[in-house]
Design a binder for these strands. Structure first.
Lengths: 168, 168
DNA sequence: CCGAATTTTCAATAATTATTGAAAATATAT
DNA sequence: ATATATTTTCAATAATTATTGAAAATTCGG
């Protein structure tokens, strides 16, 4: 397979992958393109490679910057802005986990805390099932939260070697 | 907070949560409703509680069955079908992980295997960056795949106690 | 400060995805 | 076998989300 074709496939499947994870296709494709580009790219480079409009490109680049996955690069003597993606995949994964934890897991845990305090007789099976469900989700969620915190601090080498042994 | 209000909030936030994870809102809401229902429900029960059409309810129940999260229950003397959700949250999480691994992670790893074999001189920086990226994603992905396999087999007690210690 | 290059915004539009509801298919009791 | 209850399908429609492109704002060299 030629590079040009392999790039296409990588970008398009990264885009499809993203859509299964609540990330829009274009954002994932821009990320993919930057991941495999040896040098920083401009907006125009990306527009051309991916056949997307200027507005779309701009909005998604900024979203990637918000996620901490892409950063602006200043090239001396150049008027245009250049962009580059973090290439260390372990860092990328940690960054995504960190953001999603903050945006989704933490608010969910807060809500569950409130819901656990529902009024009523705990002997009523409707109350009991509700509280039991909320408590068990909360318990697992808190556990996941702590585990992810540890992961976010960890080195990749730790993940690959130690965790693997642990999981015997 | 009264039960009726707490239920509403639980269902609606579980629905919103789902949409961030590539699951449609209705499917997540049906799942939420079944999780907090002490007894099995019929399609009509769900339609009424969630204010959704028969077709929508039916399709999403079947999708939940495909995911292994909901099952049909036969109630003796009843003509209608009843449905119930797995209440053990750890089992629910494992089931979701198992399905997503099969549907998304494994196909991605297969693709990366193909892409790694791209033609060309590895000293060309375009080729090199591409291959390096593919290889590092593949490495991490394979690791995650194995780790998730172990998790799928694990008991919740193991997760809550042992894993926690491990993560110091 | 001026003017050109570049970036950002956002209303309009397109594309995608979810939902409805009625008809068709299926199951069951008598 | 027939009538009735129940489930399933799916074309039409609605709702949501993504994308465009041109105008406005900003940046920067001179």
């Amino acid at each position: 397979m030629k590079l040009i074709e392999a790039k296409q496939q990588f970008i398009s499947s990264w885009g499809a992958f993203g859509t299964h994870w609540g990330i829009n296709r274009t954002m994932a494709q821009i990320h993919a393109l930057l991941l495999i580009s040896p040098d920083p790219l401009t907006q125009d480079d990306m527009m051309e490679e991916l056949n997307i409009s200027r507005g779309n490109t701009n909005m998604n680049i900024r979203e990637l910057i918000n996620w901490g996955l892409v950063e602006r690069v200043l090239l001396s003597g150049e008027r245009k802005e250049y962009f580059t993606a973090e290439k260390d995949i372990w860092k990328v994964v940690k960054q995504i986990v960190k953001e999603r934890k903050k945006r989704e897991l933490e608010p969910m845990l807060q809500l569950l805390d409130k819901l656990e305090a529902v009024e009523g007789d705990k002997r009523d099976k409707h109350i009991k099932t509700f509280v039991d469900t909320v408590v068990s989700i909360k318990k697992l969620g808190k556990q996941a939260d702590k585990t992810l915190d540890t992961m976010i601090k960890a080195e990749e080498s730790w993940f690959v070697s130690s965790l693997m042994k642990m999981f015997k």
